[in-house]
């Protein structure tokens, strides 16, 4: 396969991404109702949840691709792992920022120590460290090998992190964020659910598109990757 030529499937995916993301924007602006208590700011919720979902999905993909590298020792897998984690980190940061934007008018604070939001923030730190690790390694092979091990370890600790923070919160409840967290703090109407699922789907497509683009970029930077054996 000639890496320099853009595959037509990717072009189709580009178009799909634009279509779906626009559709979700239209849905959230005009289709979903304004939440009674929180007002229009609640609409950030669709993007917040979808970004968090996309981030988690990317990190899992990054670990799977890392395992693929360790099995096959083909640097293409590492490019995929790197691409996934990079996109995942951007999604996680979007989730954190949108969470803060949401928290500010609702709870009058930029930050709530909600288990999900906190887990996402810690995940972001974990994956920032991933890039620091790669930056300190001098050969592509070492970056791929150690990056893969770290990516797998990182994904495995996420459930532990989430569980520990949630357990911590049930023992020391915060005054403001009662009732669990953002997701379950209000009752969702069928229209809200429709918009949420559409948004999850759109973000998944966006994620696939971005990862693919980033993967191609990594492949192009790495001229010998095609003949690696």
């Amino acid at each position: 396969m000639n890496v320099a030529k853009k595959p037509s499937l990717l072009v189709i995916l580009d178009i799909l991404t634009v279509l779906f993301m626009s559709a979700v924007l239209v849905l959230t602006w005009f289709f979903t109702p304004v939440e009674a208590v929180m007002g229009p700011v609640q609409k950030v919720f669709y993007f917040h949840i979808s970004a968090a979902w996309g981030g988690m999905l990317s990190f899992i993909l990054g670990a799977i691709a890392g395992a693929g590298y360790l099995r096959s020792r083909r640097l293409g897998w590492d490019s995929l792992s790197l691409a996934s984690i990079e996109v995942g980190l951007v999604f996680a940061l979007i989730a954190i920022l949108s969470g803060m934007i949401w928290a500010r008018p609702i709870w009058n604070t930029w930050w709530v120590w909600d288990p999900r939001l906190t887990t996402t923030a810690i995940m972001a730190l974990i994956y920032l460290a991933y890039f620091i690790l790669r930056g300190g390694l001098s050969t592509p092979e070492a970056r791929a090998r150690l990056g893969a091990v770290y990516a797998i370890l990182a994904v495995l600790t996420v459930p532990l992190t989430f569980f520990s923070i949630r357990l911590f919160r049930t023992i020391h409840p915060v005054v403001i964020a009662t009732g669990g967290g953002q997701g379950s703090a209000f009752n969702m109407t069928p229209r809200m659910l429709t918009a949420l699922f559409a948004s999850l789907l759109a973000f998944t497509i966006l994620l696939a598109d971005l990862v693919w683009h980033r993967f191609r970029l990594a492949q192009l930077q790495n001229p010998l990757s095609e003949e690696e054996n």
């Binding site: 050969t139 092979e141 010998l224």
Partner: peptide, 12 residues
């Protein structure tokens, strides 16, 4: 000792 068709790359 026998080595056959060994390839080792550093930095490609």
């Amino acid at each position: 000792i026998e080595m056959r068709d060994l390839v080792k790359r550093f930095h490609h």
